[in-house]
Simulated assay, not measured.
Amino acid sequence: MISIKEVTNKAGLKAFVKFPFSLYKNNPYWVPPIIKDELETFDQTKNPVFANAEARFFLAYKENKIVGRVAAIINWLEVKEQGLKKMRFGWFDFVDDLEVSKALLQKVASIGAENALDYMEGPVGFTNLDKVGVLIEGFDHIGTMITWYNHPYYQNHYEAHGFTKEKEYLENKFKAAAADPKLFEKANTLIKRRFQLRELNFTKSEDIMPWVDKMFDLFNESYAKLSSFVKITDVQKEYFKKKYISFINPEYIKFVVDKDDELVAFAIVMPSFSKALQKANGKLFPFGFYHLLQARKNSKDVIFYLIGIRPEYQNKGITAIIFNEYYHTFKEKGVENCIRTPELEENTAIRQMWKHFNPITHKRRRTYRKALN
């Protein structure tokens, strides 16, 4: 018999965070989170997303053993401002037992019904900067710190419970050497001259900080038309600034500004921390922090995390400026492989941006939805 228990204390939340460590034990492709970071994500006193969202956490038990987990999330900005009556769910993991996944999903559905929501969708996080989608292809490729990994049977569970595909995301990679400067060197010069633009490069994190709020404003502006987008609030900007910007190599953050020093485009690339996180196995101490610092300094793989271009400058070749700068940075750092974060299948503009680099789609993931009666 399956029993579902709500997490109501720190011990329960720690069990919630640690469940995948047993589910994916010895899996060479799963990338564990840092337990402390994951706990902070779920802490209402630390994560500002809870100013506009709520979440409840559930564990499934069978014979007194944890066999599944789910986070049931309502983003009230999405519900009230966008009119999307959506019940979100994420951090959804389970053993290969249909009764377990069914019981967890029924719990999410009941919360959605209590709040008069129309449908449920997952797996998703609180916002667009969280992890998204269940992996449906690419199980033999190592995960990243900004995506979920899952067993192949997950897809069967969603479909067995009457869920249908909502959105599909592609993950692509290409060799850094494919970013041939001949493709954009000339364009880079012409576009800068035509639009009176210049690039900004950085060597210190503190020099980036004055630009970060403008960067998030531009992020909100760039992605506003995508169906899944929920804007980043001012309080969240501060949180992400403190949590992430100082840990990303400053030379991996590129800005493009106009003649008035207004931000036109930005890109953030991160070194791949996947193997370092596997070595850390959830803990920063005693050696986890060392492994992460080594990856920050020496990783030959990088992840294109975010790119934003002001709408009036989209499709005008601004990426030539960004890629030209990255080419020189990557060459200096000895970067070999470029990996892209999940991109919506419907986002044709982003696919056009990468077409010259011979990208290979190595993973696909989906969110699934179901109507709430």
Rank of each mutant, 00 (worst) to 15 (best):
M1T: 15
I4M: 07
T8D: 07
K10L: 10
G12V: 00
F16R: 00
K18G: 02
L23W: 08
K25E: 13
K25T: 03
P28I: 05
Y29C: 07
V31S: 05
P32M: 04
P33A: 07
P33H: 04
I34L: 10
I34S: 00
D37Q: 11
T41L: 12
N52M: 09
A53V: 03
F57A: 00
L59M: 10
N64D: 14
I66D: 07
G68A: 01
A72C: 12
I73D: 07
N75A: 08
V79D: 05
G83P: 08
R88K: 14
F89T: 01
L98H: 14
V100H: 03
L104A: 02
K107W: 09
N115R: 12
D118E: 14
M120N: 00
M120F: 11
M120K: 00
E121G: 04
V124W: 10
G125W: 00
T127L: 03
L129K: 05
D130F: 00
G133K: 01
G133N: 06
V134A: 14
I142C: 05
W148C: 03
Y149H: 07
N150T: 00
Q155T: 09
Q155R: 10
N156P: 02
E159L: 09
A160R: 13
A160E: 07
F163A: 01
E166C: 12
E168F: 00
K173Q: 12
K175T: 08
A178H: 15
D180I: 00
R193S: 13
F195H: 11
Q196R: 12
L197P: 00
R198T: 09
L200N: 08
T203V: 12
T203H: 13
K204M: 10
D207H: 11
V212G: 05
F216N: 04
E221G: 04
K225G: 11
S228V: 13
Q236S: 12
K242G: 14
K243L: 14
F255C: 08
D261G: 05
E262T: 10
F266I: 05
I268H: 09
V269K: 02
V269W: 07
V269D: 09
M270W: 08
S272G: 08
F273A: 12
K275L: 13
L277K: 03
L277C: 03
A280K: 07
F285C: 09
F285S: 10
G288N: 04
L293Y: 06
Q294I: 12
A295D: 07
D301R: 15
I303F: 14
Y305I: 08
I307E: 01
G308K: 01
I309W: 00
R310P: 04
E312T: 10
K316A: 06
A320S: 15
I321S: 01
N324E: 03
N324W: 02
N324F: 03
T329I: 14
F330E: 09
K333T: 11
N337Y: 13
C338A: 11
P342S: 08
E346H: 08
N347E: 01
I350M: 13
H356S: 15
F357Y: 11
R366C: 11
K370W: 10
